[in-house]
Computed example of a mutant assay.
Amino acid sequence: MTQQQWGRQGQQGFGGGQWGPPTGQRPVAPQPSSRLQAGPWGPPSQAPGAGGPWGGQWQQPSSPLPTPRPPQRGNPVLKVVVAAIVGIIAVALIANVVTDLVGGQRAQGQTTQYQQEDYQVPPPEANPPELPLPKVEADLDRLTKQNKVYDSTVPSPTRCEMTEIKLGTATKTQIKKSMDELTACLSRVWDPTLEQAGLTFVRPVSNVYSTSIQSPCGKIPAGNAVYCAANQQIYLSTTLNQVLPPEVAGGRFVVETVIAHEVGHAVQYRTGIGAAASYEIQNLPKAESLEVNRRLEVQADCFAGLFLESVAQSRGMSQTDLANIRTLMVAIGDDTLSGKPAVVGNHGHGSSRQYWAEMGLASTKVGACNTFVAPATLVK
């Protein structure tokens, strides 16, 4: 498959909205052949991971969504003890991140020694190299569950200097400038991380749009952000703020989180995770297909968290900023956007998206974001 053949298969949006599963004929299950089928992975109407509109109006959840915990097994008493320990550890990790980063310095009050200070940021790549694709069925698990990038560590802390903007008031020119500065920061973090695994990161070209536009991955609706695998570029709508709750849309780190999620998809496709997952999405039964899509999406949330942790000191992240990120992740959950608490969507419930974003914020290890081996309860 060439990049030109991707079509909507390679379009990954930030919010799931009401898209749900593709309509039409159910994809055919993989044949027992050891080699993947050649050519496109199905017609555009069956495209997995399409980054459709957010859908509906944002609704305040009736009660705060809980952060999901690992599944409980074995002795009932042990279950309670383990759950309590896991909860304490999770809270402690996030608390340590905030304590460590607020004020722009590490603990002990030492002057920050930023990593990658001699890194030369490359220009955005308009003609990127071809994406790695699975060749045999054994590649699917190898790329999604045992990818060599999971052994890598993101450099932290790293410097990130960018112009802060607010969607809704900033001009297209201002948004474009800020996005380009942000992709430079993302390159500083992800380029050396992929290099550790012998892989190649590509700094994506950023595009700003207002009304729906046409792309190599199909039509991109307004009010969203999208990564397109066909040209390996990212897109941000100037009207994205209109589908977010006001207290979130006006806060810091909204644009950073959204774009870091989309570049998280770029990381997935540059490592082969994205293509392998897309093949599975296209060929599995509906319920399994949706679950794989959610694993792909919440992993991008976790990758965004890794980046935000890396640049938090440089950007002066505060406890208020961290709370805003948590609220944002809940706000773009399938359940929140649809207003249906029990919905089975393709991006994940707000609690799952928040959980994985926090997993990234609490770590520098890419393996912490291996959502493809996580229990199904953590990717609901």
Rank of each mutant, 00 (worst) to 15 (best):
V208M: 07
Q37Y: 10
Q9G: 02
Q113H: 03
L290S: 10
A312L: 03
Q3H: 11
P134W: 00
A126T: 13
Q46T: 00
E262K: 13
S278Y: 05
L101Q: 06
L131R: 09
A107F: 01
T169K: 10
A90W: 13
T271E: 03
V255L: 11
S351M: 01
R159P: 01
T271F: 06
A287V: 08
P246S: 04
Y114D: 09
L101C: 01
Q113V: 14
W58I: 11
P124R: 05
L290F: 03
K148L: 00
A357D: 00
P53N: 15
C228D: 10
E297Y: 02
I273D: 06
D139M: 05
C160S: 13
A357E: 10
N241H: 13
L143P: 14
P44R: 06
V379P: 05
Y235Q: 00
G218L: 05
T153W: 11
G223T: 05
M329H: 02
K79L: 07
T23C: 11
G218Y: 02
P44D: 12
A368E: 07
N207D: 03
A170L: 06
F253L: 10
Y119S: 10
T364R: 15
V366S: 04
T336F: 00
N241S: 12
R73E: 05
G367S: 03
V343R: 03
L36Q: 06
E125A: 10
I281Q: 07
K145F: 10
K79T: 13
T158G: 09
S212R: 15
V102L: 09
A260P: 11
V121C: 08
E291L: 13
C217L: 01
K172D: 11
V311A: 09
R35V: 08
R188D: 02
V258D: 12
T173E: 14
P70F: 08
H265T: 03
Q242P: 01
V263R: 07
A362C: 00
N346Q: 10
L93M: 09
H349L: 04
A29H: 14
